[in-house]
Write a protein that binds this DNA or RNA. Structure first.
Lengths: 159, 159
DNA sequence: TATTGTTATACTCTATAACTATA
DNA sequence: TATAGTTATAGAGTATAACAATA
C-alpha cells in the first residue's frame, strides 16, 4: 500500500483506484459472508462442471489457495467436492442450492459496486476508460514481469 | 493476486493493470538497486527538508515501514538521517549527492515505464483514461473502506 | 499527555516442497 | 513420468505494541 506517488502518475492512479475498489468490494461481499475469491469460484463453478485446478486457473490463484477457498465454501454449505467421473484424481466443485442463491446475490453486489464506481463518471469517459483498460490488459500490460524467484529451503523430511 | 474475474469487469481490469505495471516498475527500478518506496522517498526528500513521518505520510506507508526504507537508503549511501534543528525528536532525511544522481535516473525510469504503457493507447484514449482515473481517485474512490481491525495480543513485556 | 523514531514481533498471505493417489 | 489435490510450513510483507527521548 505504498505507491511511488510523485505526482499524478499512472502507477499511483491504478494502485489507488484498484486498492480502494478492492476494499469496497471486500466490505460489500463480507456482508453475506463471502470473499472475492469465494464469489469468483462460485460463479465459475456454476457455469459448468469444473475441477479445482480449472477454477484456480480461471481465478488466477494457486492450487493451494484454491484448497482453502473451497474449504471455506464447503464449511459455509455453499459448495461440495465431488469425485470427477472422468478423472479419479480430480474433484469437481458442485455448488449447492444455497450456494446458487448466494451467488446470485453476490453477483448483484459485485455489479452494484462497479456500477456505483463507474456512475461517478460521465458516460463518454466511462466508455473510454473501460476500452483503454481493456486495451492495456490485452496488450502492453498483459504479461507480468516475473519476480526474482526467492530460493526456498527444503522442508524437513517427514519420517 | 486473485481478482473476482467474472468477465471484463472493472475490478479485474484495475487489479490486473496495476499489478502488471507494478511488476514492470519493480523490475525496472531493481536494475539500479531501488524499490518503488526508495524512489518515492528519495524524490520527496529532495523536494524539501522532510522528517520520516512526513515522508511516510506522502508515500502512504506506516512509520515502521519507513524505518526499513530509510535503512536501505542509508546502507546504499543514497540518504542520511540528520537530527532536525526544529524538533529534537525528529530526524530529517538528507539525500546525498549520489542519492540525487540516482533519483534523477530513477525518475527517468519511472517516466519511461509510464510512457511505454500509455504509448500503447491512442492519444485521445490516453487523455480520457487519465482524466477518468483522476476523477475516481479524487471522487468516489478516494476513501478506502476500513478493514475489520484484527485484534492483536499484547507483546511480551520487556524486562 | 502526545509525538518521533525505534525495536521486536504477531499476523496475514501466498507459494514452495513434499506427499498420496491416480493417469 | 506427470498431474490433482492435500498438508505443512517458509518467507515476504506489514502493522501493532511497547519503549525512549523529547515536546
Amino acid at each position: 500500500m505504498a505507491p511511488a506517488r510523485t505526482e499524478s502518475d499512472l502507477s499511483f492512479l491504478l494502485d489507488r483506484t484498484s486498492h480502494v475498489l478492492r476494499t469496497r468490494m471486500a466490505a460489500a461481499l463480507a456482508e453475506i459472508g463471502l470473499t472475492a475469491r469465494m464469489h469468483c469460484v462460485l460463479v465459475h463453478a456454476l457455469e459448468q462442471e469444473r475441477t479445482q485446478v480449472q477454477l484456480a486457473e480461471l481465478g488466477d490463484m494457486d492450487k493451494t489457495t484454491m484448497v482453502v477457498t473451497v474449504d471455506a465454501l464447503e464449511q459455509a454449505g455453499l459448495a461440495e467436492r465431488r469425485p470427477s467421473s472422468a478423472d479419479r484424481r480430480a474433484r469437481v466443485i458442485v455448488v449447492t442450492e444455497k450456494g446458487a442463491e448466494v451467488a446470485k446475490r453476490s453477483q448483484r453486489i459485485v455489479d452494484g459496486v462497479h456500477r456505483e464506481a463507474l456512475g461517478a463518471l460521465p458516460d463518454d469517459e466511462r466508455e473510454v476508460l473501460l476500452r483503454a483498460l481493456n486495451r492495456l490488459v490485452t496488450g502492453h500490460l498483459s504479461i507480468p514481469v516475473a519476480a526474482p524467484p526467492t530460493a526456498r529451503r527444503a522442508r524437513e523430511r517427514a519420517k
